[in-house]
């Protein structure tokens, strides 16, 4: 009997401790942030917590579709702040998943360069505020590859067998295949998609891996010598290996603008506004851009960024590239065509 007593007392204690630690967590004010992986450095979040006393629960996703899925499968109000891209904002607005933003709650809103405001997916920035911009770019390790590469077609070169890493994003990669063949990146024409599929199947022997979260690692560890990836990833790879060169292909690049948005019914909206406002601060944005050198949209930060950032075409994307680039658009029901095509390629 004693033994049983002892065991039950121990169990009781453990349960008690667990419950207590569970409860104490609840008393803190929290903000549940759902963001892209590799987007905001841990240190920025910690400093925000220190400054405001709020606790940040940070979780990540690696594609817009995953963000949509996480927000809509969780109970309403689970997440307080998300960072969807252009076309996903449009979809979320249509599905009434976002709270209208009260811009007067953001002191630093005027830091944003007006060039990036009022985009077609959210014409009056009613639901979203730009965070950063990104473009796809081809990065090549010049130590091993000296060929002239100017177009996506050049990636089909048989010498690159098992040597190319691509982002794991169906809309972007299929979009690039469409661009390579001279089609609209958002086409829903089945014949054109069929041609894009054949092109990707031809490319497949050259593909080392699909990776969205950190394709730069493949370049840094020299696992592959060519990658099609987001500009900041390429810039980061360059910091580790100066042999890496960036190429914006003639057909144009895929662009993406990522935005702050508050999901409908978010429970800690005030905290979310605090977080957005904190990030819009010039010095905070500077830290973020220095860690993850995407295209900065914050004019107050721009002057703080050094030549390493400004003169690197992989981080400070030239305007001509943006003008020659394409956004992924919401194509509605036809997204199923892309789903199936993706399964066929893999």
């Amino acid at each position: 009997m004693k033994k049983v007593m002892k065991i039950s007392i121990t169990i009781g204690c453990i349960l008690g401790i667990c419950l207590l630690s569970g409860c104490s967590k609840e008393t803190n004010q929290v903000v549940n942030v759902l963001n892209w992986s590799s987007y905001i450095p841990d240190s920025v979040i910690r400093e925000f917590e220190k400054e405001t006393g709020l606790q940040v629960n940070y979780s990540t996703y690696s594609s817009n579709e995953e963000c949509l899925a996480k927000v809509s499968s969780a109970k309403e109000g689970t997440y307080d702040l998300i960072f969807p891209s252009d076309y996903m904002i449009e979809i979320m607005i249509k599905r009434e998943m976002l709270e209208p933003l009260e811009q007067n709650k953001l002191q630093n809103i005027n830091n944003i360069d007006s060039f990036y405001l009022n985009q077609s997916f959210d014409p009056e920035n009613k639901y979203s505020i730009p965070f950063v911009m990104a473009s796809t770019v081809i990065a090549v390790n010049r130590e091993h590859i000296s060929d002239d590469i100017t177009s996506y077609q050049d990636l089909l070169n048989e010498n690159y067998r098992n040597n190319i890493t691509l982002i794991d994003d169906q809309r972007i990669i299929i979009g690039i295949a469409l661009l390579a063949n001279g089609y609209d990146m958002n086409t829903v024409n089945e014949e054109e998609l069929e041609i894009a599929k054949d092109w990707l199947l031809k490319l497949k022997p050259n593909i080392k891996a699909f990776d969205s979260d950190s394709p730069k690692n493949f370049l840094i560890t020299e696992e592959s010598d060519i990658a099609v990836l987001w500009n900041a990833e390429a810039a980061l790879a360059y910091q580790e290996n100066h042999n890496i060169e960036f190429i914006y292909p003639v057909e144009g690049s895929a662009l993406s603008m990522d935005n702050f948005a508050i999901p409908k019914g978010a429970r800690n909206q005030e905290a979310a506004y605090q977080f957005i406002d904190y990030i819009l601060r010039a010095d905070v944005m500077e830290k973020i851009i220095k860690s993850y050198p995407y295209k900065n949209v914050n004019q107050a930060t721009q002057s703080l960024l050094g030549p390493d950032y400004l003169y690197n075409i992989a981080s400070n994307i030239p305007t001509s590239i943006i003008e020659n680039g394409f956004y992924v658009k919401n194509i509605g029901e036809s997204v199923k065509l892309y789903d199936k095509l993706w399964a066929e390629i893999k």
Binding site: E65, A69, I207, F210, D211, D339, A343, K346
Partner: peptide, 21 residues
Amino acid sequence: GGGKMMILGNLIKNQFLTARN
């Protein structure tokens, strides 16, 4: 596998978390 292959696990995961079908 570098995300290059799709087995049932990935397919189901994609339907629930990415394609949302």
